[in-house]
Design a protein around this nucleic acid. Structure first.
Lengths: 207, 207
DNA sequence: GTTGAAATTAGTACGAA
DNA sequence: TTCGTACTAATTTCAAC
């Protein structure tokens, strides 16, 4: 496995640790993901370092790629895209390259991830009405040879979206859970993990 | 259905069109989602309006909620969270409130959406290693009474993440697809839509 | 909705701790 | 490395058009 995440924008195969992030770096990231437009001066104050230091670290994080980009979160409903759907795609093996190329030409696609399990990829699309989902899936996706099958579900509500999870969050969130109950005192049967092999095998039955 | 999206941060039930966005507003959003830290002066220039106008519109978009927030996209791998997984959750009916409350206490959760289909919700989690996924699902999620069952898949690669889709993207992306082939000249059998009712019914069998 | 000038703030450079 | 200060450039605000 080439490792997931972290290689979205940059097509450089580089994975190695460019700079190791200390607690101050993390604090900076924490502030920046909440308010991407904060001035470096205000950032320095909130983190508790000097302005010059903040500039240095800010640039370092950017240059290293730890900060990939700054973006505005748009309200899709107000922007005219009130319908969100997930399309789970089964991709014909060795046609991944074509699949990715086609994805790039579909502006409705906001996110695409390769997954283990029954399907090969999950894509999230935003459109203005439900009919468009149908058109997108049956007309455009169906015409991609790389796409063997799809399964579509609609998103009824987005309960939460965090501006990007950081390892430091864990300590904060676990406070009220310190004296955790004995693990696995609950029937494990209801929890299911779906690995890649299992999914692929199940797939070949109706291939 | 209360309509999806657009109501993440704001708990005000307001849905109505605060201001209707014209082409200039859209251009502004287009620029800001690519570069959330651009100065308003530079933004004005790129959009082709005066600075004062840009300030006015910028503030209006912010106040209206069309821009929800500005954030930095972090490289999870560099931040120490190299593992991403999707957990599909079946929620016991009328325990949604509890489910949401528990989610809020799990910092590993980056995203949660209520979906139609076989499961009720999909959550995306980021952790540092695969063992943590196991712990999270079998120990912490299993202990939530609202959680009836889960199914977990791993994300092997994130192919694309757009900084937020806008309706204007459609026109740009469709250029090379203008002379589209006749619709639905492909076997429809391989495309499957999963509605809520179907999913819920299938669920009751093993409830 | 635009332009231009004043006030404020941001970004840079450099020496000292 | 980090900090503090001084300097320069840019941005934001506010005015009149």
């Amino acid at each position: 496995m080439s490792g997931n995440s972290g290689r979205l924008g940059d097509s450089t195969g580089r994975i190695g640790i460019g700079l190791d992030l200390d607690a101050t770096h993390m604090k900076i990231l924490e502030v920046l993901r909440e308010n991407g437009r904060i001035s470096v001066a205000a950032l320095a104050e909130r983190v508790g370092i000097s302005r010059a230091n903040a500039y240095t670290r800010f640039e370092a994080l950017r240059a290293d790629g730890a900060i990939k980009r700054f973006t505005a979160e748009i309200d899709h409903l107000r922007a005219g895209l009130g319908i969100t759907a997930l399309v789970f795609v089964t991709v014909r093996q060795q046609m991944w390259k074509q699949f990715r190329a086609e994805l790039a030409r579909m502006p409705e696609v906001e996110y695409c991830a390769i997954t283990t399990g029954q399907h090969d990829a999950m894509i999230q699309v935003r459109v203005s009405d439900v009919a468009e989902v149908h058109r997108l899936v049956t007309e455009r996706m169906a015409n991609i040879p790389a796409v063997k099958a799809t399964e579509t579900v609609f998103i009824l509500d987005e309960v939460l979206r965090r501006p990007y999870v950081l390892p430091t969050d864990r300590d904060a969130g676990r406070t009220s859970r310190r004296a955790a109950p004995e693990p696995a005192d609950v029937p494990l049967g209801k929890m299911r993990f779906v690995g890649a092999a299992e999914g692929r095998a199940a797939l070949r039955k109706d291939g």
